[in-house]
Design a protein around this nucleic acid. Structure first.
Lengths: 339, 339
DNA sequence: CAAACACGTCGAAGCGCTTCGACGAGCCCT
DNA sequence: AGGGCTCGTCGAAGCGCTTCGACGTGTTTG
């Protein structure tokens, strides 16, 4: 391994000069800088990460905590993770991948050891047990998701409440009165995952205001689970003409099952999805959907975090406004005469 | 931040003793050990990662390089990544997430800076430009995937050649003669991704041996792309009765399109998929499939890597034997009388 | 019964870097 | 012309840890 000292010797300057060339924290004459840079290139020097971290107490690493569970939203998670990694690199940071498995311990470990300078948390629950620790640690952090109490925290998320409202409004405008919501797996609600509960709240509130009937059913996803769920829905509410789906792995099964029942989309029933655009566009019917802007969320989270690390930027909740793209899966409700 | 020295003072021992308690590299009396451990707990001590890395020249970090592109196999990637992270933690390592974006530079950077002790590479191309660097660096590494030349490297992968052969054999046994392969996006083949090319090779070779006709078509995935691809396939080979699909996002569209053409699965056409079991089970028809054992691959890769880091284990190519699970999407070919 | 050997502990020397204060050299200002 | 600047560079002091050799003690062994 080539060291700073070797570079310094090779360039005929002192070690500190090389360091300052690297960091730019003091002015260096053009001639010296050039000589040093050449030596660096020639010797193939790479600063030692550990030594750097020790001396500067900054690791240039951002920890990203992703949910362990693969029971939901995998493509979204992946997209966020990749956006985080890419954006972080652009700012000179690397990304440490933590799984949710360790839970709060991971927060302690990373904070305590100085392994990372900052954290990004995904899959935040409304009353997440990691949050008190995070607040106490004083470590810069950003949540992707929105807990019940966000004081003292920075959050980036899609405005899921507005998302729910938007879906309902769209269906209302088209004349639908009976709406069914196909949600995430029951477990997702049981652990009070922010986005799921907020969407539901938005749906319910706006539906109430607009005098619509709303039936919410969690669904594991997959064909069989969706079949059962759909049967129940029609059992309970035979007049259902609108669906809101917030579960990527239920989308295709739902479309297939509707077809199978002889129900045409969008002539007989309308479907609004909450999913990444790519999924909406690739489905067997191009879906009217509110996009989950995964990349944007990842990017924003890192930007906010870097701002904090550089002393700019204070705590703040950033809620991205939902956008509904009308595609081929929604249309006017079949006339009331149908009854 | 609590330091080793503070713990030592609190416990009334020297710093080195605390260090030895932590590492277990020298014997410590039970009494001392207990006193030290208590101090650690009481003070909430966490060893500083940077200092540790500097002093020991080991970072206890494994770098995982995932493809940047989200054009393929996202759930598989995610599953592998999570398995890697989980397994690594179990061995006391953390995982650094690198995107393919940086390419070979990332290898240089990580190797040179001592940021990570070892690397895992995913999405390996047959003639991957990162490999020479990796060999030269002498850094312990494991590939998930199999390049054309694996000398001096450790690889873990599903035996995709055998996988292809297995799919063909299954269809042959059922009496199918004309087979279509719906592959990954064309770009995947263009960059000579190992698994895609090997599967194809396995399919072709075995098909040749068994006297079957094989038509391979790359496919972007999604409904529209699949529609075009399927139309072309039937144009060119109207007698096609068997499909092999190696593209998660083409599976459901294919099933939907076949249904739409009035072709029943498995009565009229059989479909074999290469995908994770979960996808196969959740599809609208339970798919006969060769499972891609994502978790297993991630786990094995880490195990091999840790073995190397501990001085055990030499270079080796681990090819997991494919397993075909027969489900509801394959059946006897419709009698030849159909012509 | 002295020599040999664990065993448990300590002190000190670094690991490779950042950063602070110091210092000479050239500059401007009055 | 001399005091006060700024500019570019250097030396040295750590950052918090690991690890090596050394040093008692207590225990075995020929």
């Amino acid at each position: 391994m080539v060291t700073l000292a070797e570079v310094a010797q090779h360039a005929g300057v002192s070690a500190s000069t090389v360091s300052y060339v690297l960091s730019g924290k003091r002015s260096i004459s053009a001639a010296t800088r050039q000589r040093v840079e050449e030596s660096i290139r020639e010797l193939g020097y790479h600063p030692n990460a550990g030594a750097r971290a020790l001396a500067s107490s900054r690791s240039n690493i951002i920890a990203l905590m992703v949910p362990l569970r693969t029971d939901m939203y995998v493509p979204v998670m992946m997209e966020i993770a990749i956006a985080v990694a890419t954006t972080a690199r652009a700012h000179g940071y690397d990304v440490l991948l933590l799984t949710g498995e360790e839970g709060p311990d991971a927060v302690r470990r990373v904070t305590g050891s100085g392994l990372a300078d900052a954290m990004i948390l995904m899959d935040v629950e409304l009353d997440d047990e990691r949050l008190p620790l995070l607040r106490a640690s004083g470590q810069p952090s950003v949540l992707i998701g929105l807990p019940a109490d966000a004081t003292g925290l920075t959050c980036v998320d899609l405005d899921f409440t507005a998302t729910g409202a938007l879906c309902v409004e769209h269906l209302a405008m088209l004349g639908h009165r009976d709406i069914a919501v196909v949600g995430e797996a029951a477990a997702v609600y049981e652990r009070h995952t922010g986005f799921a509960e907020r969407t539901l709240e938005g749906l319910r509130t706006r539906a109430g205001e607009l005098g619509m009937r709303l039936l919410h059913r969690p669904c594991e996803g997959g064909y069989d689970a969706m079949a059962v769920t759909l049967a129940r829905i029609f059992d309970e509410r035979p007049d259902t003409t609108g669906f809101v789906v917030q579960n990527e792995s239920a989308v295709e099964p739902l479309l297939a099952l509707l077809r199978q029942r002889g129900l045409a989309v969008p002539e007989d029933v309308s479907v609004v999805a909450v999913c990444p655009d790519q999924v909406a566009v690739q489905a067997s019917v191009r879906l009217t959907a509110v996009a989950v802007p995964a990349q944007e969320m990842g990017r924003r989270a890192v930007d906010r975090l870097v701002a904090k690390l550089e002393g700019r930027g204070e705590d703040e909740v950033v809620l991205l406004a939902p956008e509904l793209s009308v595609r081929a899966s929604t249309g006017p409700a079949p006339s009331a005469a149908r009854h």
